[in-house]
Simulated scan of single mutants.
Amino acid sequence: MTHLTLYTTLGCHLCERLEALLDVLHEGEYRLNKVEISEDEALMQRYGVRIPVLVDEAGEELDLGFEPPRLANWLAERGRLDEAVWRRLQAGVGESGSGGHDTVKTTGKTTARSSGRRYLG
């Protein structure tokens, strides 16, 4: 099992996006420890303008992990990328082009799309 830390704050929509992407793209089990930065001045100084920041067990940080290619590359470097799901996301599987909602279900992970934009949930 992979142990990851997410530096976040309440109401961070980019953090929520990263979590949704992580749930879809991470291969295997992982434990995510969320650290609220607003409760610690040192964490606010370090991560305040960088959140969400994802950190692996070795202390390697990922900024901008809410961008799918960045998260996919970061997970691939650690041998934790679900390659099949990533290929389907890149190919736009389930895209209807009609503006409606399509859902792609892959190994218990769901990706909903609307109007050509990708929403993870």
Rank of each mutant, 00 (worst) to 15 (best):
1 M>D: 12
2 T>C: 03
3 H>Y: 08
4 L>C: 13
6 L>F: 06
6 L>M: 11
7 Y>D: 03
7 Y>M: 07
7 Y>Q: 05
9 T>V: 05
10 L>V: 12
11 G>I: 01
12 C>F: 05
14 L>Y: 14
15 C>K: 03
16 E>Y: 03
19 E>C: 13
19 E>P: 02
21 L>K: 11
21 L>W: 00
22 L>N: 03
22 L>T: 08
23 D>K: 05
24 V>P: 01
24 V>W: 00
25 L>Y: 00
28 G>Q: 05
28 G>H: 13
29 E>V: 09
29 E>F: 08
30 Y>F: 15
32 L>Q: 07
34 K>V: 03
34 K>H: 04
35 V>P: 03
35 V>I: 12
37 I>K: 09
38 S>K: 10
39 E>L: 11
39 E>V: 06
40 D>L: 01
42 A>M: 04
42 A>P: 05
44 M>R: 10
44 M>H: 04
45 Q>W: 04
45 Q>L: 09
46 R>K: 15
47 Y>A: 07
47 Y>N: 04
47 Y>H: 13
47 Y>G: 05
47 Y>P: 02
48 G>Q: 01
51 I>T: 10
51 I>L: 13
52 P>M: 10
52 P>D: 06
53 V>C: 04
53 V>E: 06
55 V>G: 04
55 V>Q: 14
56 D>I: 14
58 A>V: 08
58 A>H: 06
60 E>H: 06
60 E>M: 13
60 E>Q: 13
61 E>T: 10
61 E>L: 06
62 L>F: 03
63 D>T: 11
63 D>G: 12
63 D>P: 00
67 E>R: 02
67 E>M: 09
68 P>Y: 00
68 P>N: 02
68 P>M: 10
70 R>F: 02
71 L>M: 09
73 N>C: 02
73 N>Q: 15
73 N>H: 13
74 W>I: 08
75 L>T: 09
75 L>W: 03
75 L>Y: 01
77 E>M: 06
77 E>H: 12
77 E>R: 14
77 E>A: 12
78 R>L: 02
79 G>H: 10
79 G>R: 14
81 L>P: 05
81 L>V: 12
82 D>S: 04
83 E>I: 07
84 A>I: 11
86 W>E: 13
87 R>I: 01
89 L>G: 12
90 Q>M: 06
91 A>D: 15
91 A>Q: 08
92 G>V: 09
95 E>C: 07
95 E>Y: 14
96 S>L: 15
96 S>C: 11
97 G>A: 12
99 G>V: 11
100 G>T: 08
100 G>M: 11
101 H>F: 00
101 H>E: 00
103 T>A: 07
104 V>F: 14
105 K>D: 00
107 T>S: 14
107 T>R: 15
108 G>H: 05
109 K>I: 07
111 T>D: 00
113 R>T: 11
113 R>W: 08
113 R>H: 03
114 S>N: 13
115 S>G: 14
115 S>W: 14
116 G>K: 09
116 G>W: 03
118 R>K: 13
119 Y>W: 04
119 Y>H: 15
119 Y>A: 13
120 L>H: 08
120 L>T: 09
